[in-house]
Design a protein around this nucleic acid. Structure first.
Length: 751
RNA sequence: GGCCGGGUGGCGGAAUGGUAGACGCGCACGACUCAAAAUCGUGUUGGGAUUACACCCAGUGAGAGUUCGACUCUCUCCCUGGCCACCA
């Protein structure tokens, strides 16, 4: 009786061996430069709750892709790192007193261990950690580059303020007027804040999407977020409005102004419940420039001061929102038809001018928080805000701080942070910025650092920075993608990125679908349906987990976890292992069975194509078919064909294939450094073809003919006419037409 | 309200104009076993028909259309998921 496969022992053995032999380190050899692949996962935030199997799905996908590309001879850059700054670690520190640096690194160790036991082929020599001074030195340096080009600026601005977290929130972090994290109602507060001028890039962030391989859905989200709309600014009796429909001006019967519009004499207070339109008549009227109609001016809750001019014309006949408002307050509704000529007329009369508005705002990056990258600026009474000299970088995050929120950055409580701060221009004492940067800044350039992670002189050498070929991560990360694309474009424009690599950072983007609990609910502690790699690997092994996750269904769709499904994947690998054990005993020189040979070549073709297209589920099912075919005649299978099977399975089940590669196929070097097998087209076609015979589109019979004859219509027709089952249907009817699909199908159309 | 998906056996899914249900799960029966587990084999869309096989009909949310032929393309409708949202 052959040995049973001891997954724990074998997986540990090979993981140690791979690490020792450094087989996953990307080649630095410049001769392979034109054959490189950069395969990247969105790096994780190392949260306190460990990874679950859902997080792993994308990582397994990119790991398979990386292993496949390596075997195809590419120099593969496949690194991993940590988006280590962030609010949860700081909140945890407030609660427990444990320093964020300590808890974050404990979490990183958990994540890293989980990735390692899953058999990931990361090149850990390139690991990065955004909270390390070696990394954030360059985050600060990049901030200064943006500042020097006028792309970073400070301004007083009303910001969303969460009274509980005592911090500023980005627009995106406010959900229905509540703080994204703690559901506290958000209030407005005036603060001096740093912004990045992403609006300068709004148009290019749209047009750049044309040239990259992303799902349309994700592109659409980017476009919606930027929210470009072309319209007209019209001066109505002293009030400037923005509209995309100047052609409906004749139907305007009232004016609607944001509650805090400067034209208003007083501030109006309305409910923030936007489902309920609210307004108040100001007592004043303006004249419709087109027809002289007297239009009452209302202050309303459904117009936003931050968009357009903060004022609109109310056209209740044609706009649903205006209609709703007009009906509530009994305002006039007049029937009009849109008049496209008005675009021109208004412009000619000097009443309006064409204008493009964007929904996207400049990116507010200041955070009154501790656990983030310090902003490398000092304020001088005489010279204003100045960047610190490059030689002073990094500005270290001080350790002597009080974490408890006091309405300003905890860094302000440090006794050491301000020491020796001087103005680089005049040398006088200056005050350091105590805010930190939004963590999205870190993740906007980390993928560049991976190209040259140890560089102590530059953020990354220009000649080493390349765009990501395959980027995989959550599809709902609109902002991260926008911010990262903005960074890349800005640095590209400054000549910090080589022109030849283009101005888009992520050439291909794919998002894994959620893995739901076995109850079809989102995995969460609340439902008790969370499955982690630590639940599965000790029992079934990493290879089983990997094969199952990839086999569950299409990569990009939601799918529920199934314990029996895991067992099925485990059974499949058991059959594979026994096949190698069995065949290892009776070694054939050459596989003779033509069915096996053609199946083998078809599978080589299909698995390669499927991997490149992220169709891992069908790649595995075709491998299952191959294994089933081979198992039927296991004693006839040659060693060289078994090697091919091992190579095809190696990206999916790297440990078991490494084991059989050595133990049963007697190879010396790692299977993961071997070459991907090639197929011969002549073997992928079967010797015999099955021709479907249809009568009026209904399948009535089938013929098995030598493939080289199956393309001959006359011959196929003649054979079909003699076929008993066909004859039965053609007896006594007139054939009107015959459709022939070469090598596949013959359809008799009768009257 | 806007944008984007999805609807196929008991279940996850396969098939992007040419034999619907590959592959896997589950289930049933059989082999091995004292027995069980593991493993192997057979069957498994529904209905009809047959001692049995061959066979026949229906069938991919509903309805229409295009086509020799539609899960696949077009239109209408129903259901369902996601993202954004008073964007003027």
């Amino acid at each position: 009786m052959a040995d049973k496969y001891d997954h724990t022992k074998i997986e540990n053995k090979w993981q140690a061996s791979w690490l020792k032999d450094k087989i996953y380190q990307a080649s630095e050899n410049p001769s392979v430069k034109n054959k490189k692949k950069y395969v990247l996962d969105m790096f994780p935030y190392p949260s306190g709750s460990s990874m679950h199997v859902g997080h792993l799905e994308g990582y397994v996908g990119t790991d398979i892709l990386s292993r496949y590309f390596r075997m195809k001879g590419f120099s593969v850059l496949h690194p991993m790192g940590w988006d280590a700054f962030g609010l949860p670690a700081e909140n945890y520190a407030i609660k427990t007193g444990i320093h964020p640096d300590k808890s974050t690194h404990a979490n990183i160790n958990v994540f890293k261990r989980q990735l390692d036991i899953s058999g990931m082929s990361y090149d850990w020599s390139k690991e990065i950690d955004t909270s390390s001074p070696e990394f954030y030195k360059w985050t600060q340096w990049l901030f200064i580059q943006l500042f020097n080009k006028g792309l970073a600026y400070k301004k007083k601005s009303p910001v969303n303020w969460c009274p509980k977290d005592e911090t500023v929130l980005a627009n995106e972090q406010v959900i229905d007027g509540l703080c994204e994290r703690c559901d506290t109602p958000v209030i407005q507060k005036e603060l001096d804040q740093w912004f990045f001028k992403i609006t300068d890039y709004a148009d290019r962030l749209i047009s750049g999407l044309d040239n990259i391989d992303w799902l349309d859905e994700v592109k659409r989200q980017q476009i919606n977020w930027i929210g470009k709309s072309e319209g007209m600014e019209i001066n109505i009796d002293g009030i400037k409005i923005f509209t995309t429909r100047p052609d409906t001006l004749e139907g305007a019967t009232f004016m609607a102004l944001a509650a805090n519009h400067p034209w208003l004499d007083k501030k109006y207070e309305f409910t923030t419940d936007l489902k309920n339109k609210e307004g108040e008549f100001t007592g004043k009227y303006v004249k419709n420039p087109l027809n002289g109609r007297k239009m009452p001016v209302w202050a309303v809750n459904y117009v936003d001061m931050n968009y357009g001019t903060g004022a609109i014309m109310g056209v209740p006949y044609l706009d649903e929102r205006d209609r709703e408002f007009a009906e509530k307050y009994h305002l006039d509704i007049v029937e009009v038809e849109p008049n496209q000529k008005l675009w021109k007329t208004l412009e000619e009369k000097g009443l309006g001018e064409k204008k493009t508005n964007y929904h996207i705002r400049d990116w507010l990056i200041s955070r009154q928080r501790y656990w983030g990258c310090p902003i490398p600026m000092v304020y001088c009474e005489d010279d204003g805000w100045q960047p610190v000299p490059e030689s002073d970088l990094p500005i270290l995050l001080p350790l002597d701080v009080d974490f408890l929120p006091h309405g300003e950055s905890p860094i302000a409580t440090s006794k050491t942070f301000q020491k020796g701060a001087t103005c680089p221009k005049c040398g006088k004492a200056a005050r350091r910025e105590v805010d930190t940067m939004d963590t999205y800044v870190d993740s906007s350039w980390y993928f560049m650092r991976f190209c040259d992670p140890k560089n102590a002189k530059e953020f990354a050498a220009k000649e080493k920075i390349v765009p990501v070929d395959d980027y995989v991560g959550g599809g709902h990360v609109v902002q991260h993608l926008l911010f990262a694309r903005f960074f890349w474009k800005a640095l590209y424009d400054q000549g910090l990125i080589d022109k030849s690599v283009g101005d888009e950072p992520f050439l291909k983007l794919r998002a894994p679908g959620w893995i739901l609990g076995s109850d079809s609910r989102k995995m969460s502690k609340r439902w008790g349906n969370v499955v982690t790699p630590d639940d599965i690997i000790p029992k079934f092994g990493a290879d089983t987990l990997r094969v199952y996750e990839m086999f569950m269904g299409p990569f990009d769709v939601m799918k529920p976890w199934s314990t029996t499904g895991v067992e099925g994947a485990n059974r499949f690998l058991g059959r594979v292992y026994r096949l190698f054990q069995l065949s290892g005993i009776s070694s054939q020189q050459k596989t003779e069975n033509p069915n096996v040979i053609s199946k083998l070549h078809q599978t080589i073709k299909k698995v390669g194509e499927d991997i490149e297209n992220y169709k891992f589920n069908t790649a595995i099912s075709s491998l299952m078919e191959l294994v089933n075919t081979m198992t039927q005649d296991a004693s006839e299978i040659s060693i060289s064909d078994l090697k091919i099977l091992a190579l095809l399975l190696a990206p999916f089940a790297p440990h078991m294939m490494e084991e059989v590669w050595h133990a049963y196929l007697h190879m010396d070097s790692s299977i993961h450094t071997a070459s991907w097998p090639s197929y011969e087209a002549k073997y992928t076609v079967k010797k015999e073809s099955t021709i479907i015979i249809q009568i009026n589109g209904k399948v009535r019979s089938q013929l098995v003919i030598d493939s080289d004859k199956a393309t001959d219509q006359k011959l196929v027709e003649a054979k079909a006419m003699k076929d008993d089952r066909t004859v039965k249907y053609l007896d006594g009817v007139k054939i009107k037409n015959i459709i022939f699909v070469s090598g596949k199908l013959l359809n008799f159309v009768t009257e």
